[in-house]
């Protein structure tokens, strides 16, 4: 799969098995998910997922269409070509001696990162930014002795007032069951 990195944002019902169903669609078309971030959205019961995947635009469009078919996926958009704010958070545990500590902190300052934990022989550094920025700080810290690295993967939001992806129904929630006796919705009894 070659192309460029795409950022896909999905709003999904927060139910067991959903991630598995979504992953299955990517897997079937042999996509490698570069990163994935999931968390609650502004609507109770709905989670927002941000994927980054590498691929040709046509193939990505096909998979997003397939993903739409997962019933729990409420909305999905490829925001790659929209103006977005995209960030990733990393925690970096780096070896630190008395001698190296101030050099490390200098780097942390340059990158506007933060030291969030200090141990006898290590520091934990928190940094937020684009993947490039995180790659750069990691590269700078590696010579000191990288003990552990954790990255959240990209989260993205479209700039301006419009929401990135929203649920189509006004109240946004996932499913309704009513016993109002109104009969089935007019979705067309196709068979």
């Amino acid at each position: 799969m070659s192309g460029r990195v795409h950022t896909i944002v999905a709003l999904v019902e927060n139910r067991p098995g959903v991630l598995n169903k979504i992953a299955s669609k990517w897997r079937q078309r042999a996509f490698n998910i570069e990163s994935l971030a999931v968390g609650p959205s502004e609507v109770p019961g709905l989670s927002r997922m941000t994927f980054t995947v590498d691929g040709a635009a046509h193939d990505i469009e096909q998979v997003t269409k397939q993903l739409y078919k997962v019933i729990e996926v409420v909305k999905i958009t490829d925001v790659t070509d929209q103006g977005t704010v995209a960030r990733e958070l990393a925690l970096i545990k780096v070896a630190a001696t008395k001698e190296s500590r101030s050099a490390i902190i200098e780097i942390v300052d340059v990158f506007r990162a933060k030291v969030v934990d200090v141990g006898p022989d290590s520091l934990v550094i928190e940094t937020t930014g684009t993947e490039d920025k995180i790659d750069a700080i990691v590269a700078m810290l590696t010579p000191f002795g990288l003990k552990e690295l954790v990255r959240t993967g990209r989260v993205a939001m479209v700039r301006g007032g419009a929401p990135t992806v929203t649920a189509p129904s006004a109240d946004g929630a996932g499913r309704h069951h009513r016993s109002a006796g109104e009969g089935k919705p007019k979705l067309g009894s196709l068979i």
């Binding site: 019902e13 019933i71 929630a173 499913r175 309704h176 069951h177 016993s179 089935k184 919705p185 196709l190």
Partner: peptide, 17 residues
Amino acid sequence: FDYPEKVELAGYQPTVV
């Protein structure tokens, strides 16, 4: 037992027309 007469799924609204 209470049967939902109506099912509405936010993520499933086929276009039929």
